[in-house]
Structure formats: structure tokens, C-alpha cells
Design a binder for these strands. Sequence first.
DNA 1: ACCTGAACACCGTTCAAGT
DNA 2: ACCTGAACACCGTTCAAGT
Lengths: 215, 215
Amino acid sequence: MESVLTEAVALLDEAGEQALTFRALAQRLGGGVASIYWYVASKDELLDRATDHVIGAALADLEALPAHEDPIDELRAMAVTLFDAIMERPWLGAYFMRNTDVQGNALRLYEKLGQQTLRLDLTARQRFHAVSAIVGVVVGSAVDLGQEPPQEVLDGAVGRDEFLGRYAQTWRELDPADFPFVHEIVDEFDGHDDIEQFRSALELTLAGLRLQAGA
Amino acid sequence: MESVLTEAVALLDEAGEQALTFRALAQRLGGGVASIYWYVASKDELLDRATDHVIGAALADLEALPAHEDPIDELRAMAVTLFDAIMERPWLGAYFMRNTDVQGNALRLYEKLGQQTLRLDLTARQRFHAVSAIVGVVVGSAVDLGQEPPQEVLDGAVGRDEFLGRYAQTWRELDPADFPFVHEIVDEFDGHDDIEQFRSALELTLAGLRLQAGA
DNA sequence: ACCTGAACACCGTTCAAGT
DNA sequence: ACCTGAACACCGTTCAAGT
């Protein structure tokens, strides 16, 4: 079981979601395709369990984090750690927290984030929404980040900067009268750092939360 | 071409992403499978174009919106309208803004959102990040909302409330000492409204943005 | 308890051929 | 310019059968 998940994650990491087929996985495990069905009932369950497997590592990172006096500072540190852990695994976004019956680590991680909101002056509903919002920013940013490369970048035929630059170029050719905003931000877009984009979105959410909690 | 996209969207709306196959689409169009390849080069391009097709309708909704004096109020109204438009189309989240060469409507929508940030006292980078964050909240929430039902709900065998309630029940059985946060929010989770969750995440982001802009 | 080969019912995509 | 049937190389899943 353990090795099924380990190899599944390895396959996902090496070549992306579409590379994880039962046939490829069986070959790596040195067995037949049907064997995998003894461990999981479907591909969906395999992905759910693979997700929880890597979330387990992220949870360990989270538990190694030093405590902060300010709960919002601690939420930030946790969100950044979580983002780092799943950054290179965009496939994870679609499965994280989808089935907490199978994803015990995801549930524990959710709990750990949520405990910080218990230290803030909020209603239960506000706490629920706050944690959902933070998880949303982390997962959403990681998914965005991972879906960007449209094949040629994955092949290594075109670098990420060149890819962004090509887009930026077509944007620059748009009529500035019709697209003033696109022209305003095209230089920011060109060669932009996804991590900064995530940090910025997180900061907006945390600032809103701090305001809400009156902290 | 127009009818290819219309039927593709109809198929997606009726039965979800997995129901859109070239064979099913060809049958609806009363032709052969290979015909579709005269209009699009691949299934990916079909999804890109189908996405832009429905974003066109959302864009029209946006343009019908009354102007607000406050740019942040206008951003809120736009985000809510966009959310409503894509709420029932979670498949869209994975494709929105993925290829603006093909998605002219998505680009125009991005521009329209961005123009509101031009009215705020921000740097170009802050504007770029702000629009990314807002789009992220909208798309992320819509995707979450759509991925939830795990088959039995889609089949109509189990209602959404019952599905949530079942989860809530397993959460209630967790040890309160280990899961204080889960216990704190389980009643909020049970029967919760996804739209409220989205509105709440949006409000946190907009509050942060207002603070940043000093408005 | 754990694994297997072979089959089943699908996919997206291609291609030579038609009008 | 537009469409087609038939094939190709895959999929996830099932099942009777093995140890």
C-alpha cells in the first residue's frame, strides 16, 4: 500500500497528472494492472490517498514551525509552508480536502489552521469562513501556478520567461485605448513571480481578517 | 463553429466535464467524430473556446451593471456577477484565462475588472496582484463549489444537505480534545451555503485592498 | 490474503477518401 | 471548404482464475 502511494506520487511529480495510469503504475511496481485494485477501489480513491500522503509531509513541516504570539502571523507562516509543499504538485489542488474520510492528514491540517482562529475574536461562522478563505488562496494559487505551462514549457522547448514574454508581447500590441489596464500591468506580468502573487493575495485576506477580528 | 460550442456547453452543463466526449458531441451535431477536428485542433482547444463562449455571456452581464462611485463597490458587484455566471460551471475554472489568444472575452473581462483598480491609489504591481487575487477568489470558490458532489449527489441518490450532514456527523464523532476547531465550526459546516463562503472570502480580500489603497 | 492475464467498453486523434 | 468511416493506440475497470 505504502509503495503504491509512493510510486503514484513519484509518477505524478515526474510527469504530471496524465502520466499516472494504472498501467504505468503497475509497471513501476513490477506487477499487473489489476493488482492495484486490491488496494484502492478506483483511480479517484488513488488520487485521494496520494494527496493525503503528500499532505502528511506538509503537516509535519507545519508542526515543526515555531509558535507565533500573533495568531495571524502564525496563520501566515502556516499558509506559506503549505504553499511551498504543494507548489510543485498542482494536481493536488483538485483533491485536497475532497474526502476527509480518506484524508486524515488533510483534516488534521485543516484543524491546525483553524485552531489559530480560535485565538481571534470571531464568531464560529467567521472562523469557518476565514479558514476556507485561506485554504482557498493557498490551493487556488498553487493550482494556477501549476496549470500555466501549456506543454511546450513542460517539454522544455520554451522556458517559462520566454512563454510569459510571448504573451506580454501580444498584450502590448493591443490598443491602449481599449486595454488601459492590460498596458498598465504588462510589465509586471512579464517575468512575474507566482510566489509573490500568492503572497500578495494571502496578505489581502489576512489584512481583511485582522480588521474583522479587531486585532 | 457556433453550434459546436453551443452543443459542447450544453453537454457540459447537463452532465459535467466527463460527459463531453467527441463521440457524444458528434452525435448531438448529427455528424461524425472527425468532423469536429475541422473546427478545433484538440479537446483542449475545444474547452478553451467553450470557456470563452460562456465568459462572453458573463461579460455582457458585467457590462449591464450600473456604475458605482466607489471602485471597490464596483469590483464587488463584478465579482459577484462573475461568480453567479460560472457557479454552475465548475469545469470552467480549469480553463478560464488559460490562453488569452483564444479567449478574447476572458481578456476583456480581465481588463474590465482591472480598470477599477486604476481608480485606486496603487502601484502597477499592486493592481496586477489585486485583480489576480479577486479572480482567484471567484474562480476558486466556483471550482470548490462544483467539485464537491462526489457522484451520489450528482445521481440524485443523496441530496446535498444529507451529504454535508453525513460528513458533519463523522466530524462530530472526533475527539473534541484533538479537534477543537472542527467541533467549533461543525454546525456552520452542516448545511452551509457556498455562496456565503464565497462572499466572505471576497469581503476579506476587498477589505485588505481598501486598506492598501487607503480608500 | 494477494496477485494475474485477458477481456470489455470506452477514449482522443489520425488519415485516406469522399463531396 | 467541409465531412466521413475506419483504424490506431491508448484508457479505467472487471472477472474468472491462480497461489
